[in-house]
Write a protein that binds this DNA or RNA. Structure first.
Lengths: 203, 203
DNA sequence: TTATTATACTACAAAGTGTTTATTAGTTTC
DNA sequence: GAAACTAATAAACACTTTGTAGTATAATAA
């Protein structure tokens, strides 16, 4: 759970790992507001000053961890760019994402669902909004009918929020379903309202 | 934006109002982490000690404000208990909720969408989960078919998250739609996947 | 080995926290 | 209106946290 720029002093790698593990550790014991640089340093068995050598403050540390999270999700999805963008492809992306989250459930459970640290939710939301938006554009390009009932932005708000929220609830309940099964359910529910124009009449 | 237990000293009402307005005010200028009891007291033009006469600390204050928020939403929904629980009733509840949020958009925008203070989102989510759960139970009782494709809990996660998330996005974008219009879209989208068992075949 | 650099250690000023005590000022009740 | 009550103020206190220096020590890289 740590990204490494090429050729980095093993001491900084060690220190950063210690700091991050310490934070995750502390977050399982207390609220974010009660966590101080003091406590992190103590738990990480490093000097407090060393913390400031790596991060400006705790919010800065959370931001960087969120950056890493996004990078690792992207890596886990594999770079399946725009080729073979069929329903099956969307499927596999969703499964990959859920599998990645399940594999690192310790991390995601704390930062995304247990303590709800806004920046992590925000970053993941942005990622999913992008995925859905791309998918919708591709669909519109291939599909001939353009009679949309529900405004585009509302549909994207709705779908992305449903995705994120369901994943968070899944984590909160300690992953009661397999990634594959949940992906199947999600894509089923999602397709129902994603194709509003084909399914519904104005009423 | 404040609940009053009967017979309360006007001084405490005045002080609490000053404190709460000061917090909302400060949240529009800086992140929650940068807000201290010192700053709140200064902005509210009260003594710092007075703050501790009313709240244990800042997280405690946020909790109490979240309590008030839920109480006010309940009040705004009106006590339409279990009578006339048809599709039209759900409609009116949704419209009432969105109208209430729109009327107090200043408050909700800061606490729910701008700075994402977890406790507010959590409380509102719980409220909506309850509403949806009740609706689903009522629907199942009246409906004869019980062949559910998507597990109940996943459907509830999905729907409630979609609702909350859409409302947050609506606030973030400065209410580009009227409450009535958004309610219409939401109930349209919601009904699509709420009735999965009637609409879809197993595939 | 030598040069480099991350970390440890000590210290410091500034700010914030939570509490105590005594005083002032506003509210309620008779 | 006067007395009893209670909220808010003010000053002070011990304590923790923050962010930054300067110097020394250890690990790494050349």
């Amino acid at each position: 759970m740590s990204t490494t720029s090429p050729r980095t002093d093993p001491r900084v790698l060690r220190t950063r790992l210690l700091i991050r593990v310490a934070l995750i550790d502390l977050l399982q014991e207390m609220e974010l507001e009660k966590i101080t640089v003091n406590r992190i340093a103590e738990r990480a068995t490093i000097n407090r000053v060393t913390f400031y050598l790596h991060y400006r403050d705790i919010p800065d540390m959370l931001e960087r961890m969120a950056d890493d999270m996004i990078n690792e999700i992207h890596a886990a999805l594999g770079d399946v760019p725009d080729q073979s963008r069929t329903k099956e492809t969307d499927w596999s992306i969703l499964v990959k994402m859920l599998e990645h989250i399940a594999e690192n459930s310790n991390f995601y459970k704390v930062l995304l669902s247990s303590k709800r640290i806004p920046v992590f939710n925000d970053r993941l939301t942005k990622l999913i909004v992008d995925l859905i938006t791309n998918r919708a554009e591709q669909r519109d390009a291939s599909s001939s009918d353009s009679a949309v009932i529900v405004p585009r932005d509302i549909a994207i708000w709705y779908g992305s929020s449903a995705f994120i929220g369901t994943i968070v609830c899944w984590l909160r309940n300690d992953l009661p379903y397999t990634p594959l099964f949940l992906a199947k359910q999600l894509s089923l529910l999602f397709r129902l309202h994603q194709n509003t124009n084909e399914l519904m009449d104005p009423e």
